[in-house]
């Protein structure tokens, strides 16, 4: 699937719907993301942002519609799922580092057991990645010994270790104290400039405006409005978008 400008659509969603019991959290999401594109998702609490981003690596199974990641459709085929998960990195609001493992082991675990790399090779990569996120000196500590900002940067390094084509971020700075938000956003900005495909749920609008190619505004399980950052900041069309932006800006 190649778009007119020669870039490839790496994520394709067609009419994705999801129910939790009787409650419909996603009511038909249709969108595509090109390779290297940075998409920011925002919207009110409960609008389905997390649910949507989690369907992209099948932490949530969608009930209707189609999701194709890098040419592989997400369905009950476990082989597909393994391939997709090792290509899609995810960073969580609560970091979800493994507390019983050192920073090094957090990063190398999947390298040795999914990618089957040798320990020395994995260790070298871990050190290199920690360098990239700016905390090379923390390699032998445990997560509980790090600040929130440092933990989230380790989480980013852990996801990057798998050399994913796509990175998903679900409110990566919402659990952080204000003084630590910037250090995490700086790492993400750097990643965005390196050309990795990113989908970021965030309400850090300054950061979003700087790095995003496109915004998606979610409400009630639907994409209500979509466009460039300029479109949203200068000329939003929908009433709900205007109201929400006026509340968060």
């Amino acid at each position: 699937m190649t778009a007119a400008d020669g870039t490839r659509d790496i994520i394709i969603c067609e009419g994705v719907k999801k129910w939790f019991g009787d409650f419909q959290a996603l009511r038909g999401i249709t969108t595509t993301v090109a390779e290297g594109e940075v998409v920011v998702i925002f919207g009110p609490s409960g609008s389905g942002k997390s649910t949507f981003i989690r369907t992209l690596n099948r932490l949530e199974e969608h009930d209707e519609g189609r999701i194709v990641i890098d040419g592989v459709e997400l369905n009950n085929n476990l082989r597909n799922l393994e391939k997709v998960r090792s290509e899609v990195g995810m960073v969580f609001q609560q970091f979800n580092l493994f507390p019983h493992l050192t920073v090094r082991r957090n990063i190398t675990l999947a390298l040795t057991h999914v990618r089957h790399k040798r320990k020395s090779e994995a260790d070298a990569l871990a050190e290199q990645l920690l360098d990239r996120v700016g905390i090379p000196e923390q390699v032998d500590k445990y997560p509980a010994q790090l600040s929130g900002g440092q933990q989230q940067r380790v989480a980013i390094a852990r996801a990057l270790a798998m050399q994913p084509k796509i990175m998903l971020f679900d409110e990566p700075t919402s659990a952080l104290d204000p003084e630590m938000i910037k250090e995490v956003l700086d790492v993400m900005t750097q990643l965005a400039h390196e050309g990795i495909t990113m989908i970021v749920v965030t309400h850090e609008m300054g950061f979003a405006r700087e790095v995003a190619d496109r915004f998606l505004f979610f409400d009630y399980g639907l994409i209500v409005e979509e466009g460039t950052p300029e479109h949203f900041f200068e000329n939003p069309q929908e009433e709900r978008t205007k109201l929400f932006l006026s509340q968060i800006l």
């Binding site: 690596n57 932490l59 393994e82 998960r85 090792s86 899609v88 990195g89 995810m90 969580f92 609560q94 979800n96 580092l97 493994f98 507390p99 019983h100 675990l109 999947a110 057991h113 999914v114 989480a155 852990r158 996801a159 798998m162």
Partner: peptide, 27 residues
Amino acid sequence: VPRGQMEAAEALGLSTSRILAFIVLPQ
């Protein structure tokens, strides 16, 4: 063991048996 631990491990592509052995059971 918080649900997020399993999700983080799944998101890395670890198999169920490895998630049990390395992440869930030790904790």
